[in-house]
Simulated scan of single mutants.
Amino acid sequence: MALWVFLFRTKKKHPSSIYMANLALADLLFVIWTPLKIAYHLNGNNWTYGEPLCKVLVSFFYGNMYCSILSITCLSVQRYWVVAHPLSQQSKSTNVAVGVCVSIWAFIWLTTTPLYLYDHTVKLKDPNITTCHDVSVIKNRTDPFPSVQLPFYYFNFMAVVVFLIPCVVIVVAYILLLRALGNSMQEIKAAKNRNRSRVLIMTVLVTFMVCFIPSNIMLVVHYALLKNGVINNGYSFYISTLCLASLNSCLDPFIYYFVSEDFRNHVKNTLLCRSSRTVERMRVSFSSLKNTRKSKSSTSDTGKTKSSTS
Rank of each mutant, 00 (worst) to 15 (best):
A2H: 02
F6A: 09
T10I: 07
T10E: 10
K11R: 14
K13M: 12
S17E: 15
A21Y: 03
N22Q: 05
N22M: 08
I32D: 08
T34Y: 07
P35C: 06
I38H: 02
A39C: 01
A39Y: 05
Y40K: 05
L42V: 00
N43I: 12
T48I: 08
G50L: 12
E51N: 09
L53S: 07
K55Q: 15
V56L: 13
L57K: 07
C67L: 05
S68R: 04
L70A: 11
I72A: 12
I72G: 03
R79E: 04
V82K: 06
A84S: 07
H85M: 11
S91A: 14
K92E: 12
N95F: 12
G99Q: 03
I108A: 05
L110S: 05
L110P: 00
T111H: 01
T111P: 00
T112N: 08
T113W: 11
Y116I: 00
V122T: 06
K123Q: 08
K125E: 12
I129H: 10
S136D: 13
V137H: 04
Q149S: 13
F157A: 12
A159L: 01
A159Q: 06
V160S: 01
I165D: 09
C167A: 14
V168Q: 10
Y174Q: 14
L177H: 04
L177F: 07
A180P: 00
S184N: 04
M185G: 00
I188F: 11
R194E: 03
V199W: 08
V199Q: 05
L200Y: 10
I201T: 06
T203S: 11
T203G: 01
T207Q: 09
V210P: 01
I213L: 12
S215A: 09
M218L: 13
L219S: 07
V220M: 12
V221N: 10
A224R: 08
A224L: 07
L225K: 14
K227Q: 08
N232M: 04
N232H: 13
S236A: 06
S236C: 01
T241P: 01
L247V: 11
N248I: 11
S249F: 04
S249V: 15
D252R: 15
I255V: 15
Y256L: 13
S260P: 02
D262R: 00
N265T: 12
N265W: 00
V267K: 01
L272S: 12
S275F: 14
R281C: 10
R281K: 08
V284H: 04
V284G: 00
S285E: 08
S285H: 06
S288K: 09
T292E: 15
S295N: 09
K296D: 08
T302E: 08
G303N: 11
T305H: 11
